[in-house]
Amino acid sequence: MWAHSRGGLELLFGSVKCHEVDLDSNEITVEKLLVWIRENLLKERQEMFLKGKSVRPGVLVLINDYDWELMGHLEAPIKDKDSVVFISTLHGG
């Protein structure tokens, strides 16, 4: 699967916007993906990305271009070849 970060969040991942993630099992949940990202990709300032088991306020999670609220939130299933985007809301103008 592919994990993308947008809206400034990529800065937390060494300015890399797109990460390929090999899943050990056929299907995992977003909750487990967040744990994996915390342990493997996120090197600094975790509080800018995570809060508790979830993402911090102001971050939208998109699974194949769908808001994760429509897909089951933390329980949303992710399969191989899925695309997950983490996007920080912008306020500038």
Binding site: R6, G7, G8, E47, M48, R56, P57, G58, V59, L60, I87, S88, T89, L90, H91, G92, G93
Partner: peptide, 30 residues
């Protein structure tokens, strides 16, 4: 609409059955 750096976002809130800003972001970011 919003823009920063090289990123932009656009949506319509509070229209028909669509969400408002608080539906998407009930808690403000740090």
């Amino acid at each position: 609409g919003a823009a920063l750096g090289l990123d932009g976002q656009l949506t319509v809130y509070n229209h028909k059955n669509g969400p408002c800003y608080r539906c998407l972001f009930p808690v403000p970011p740090p």
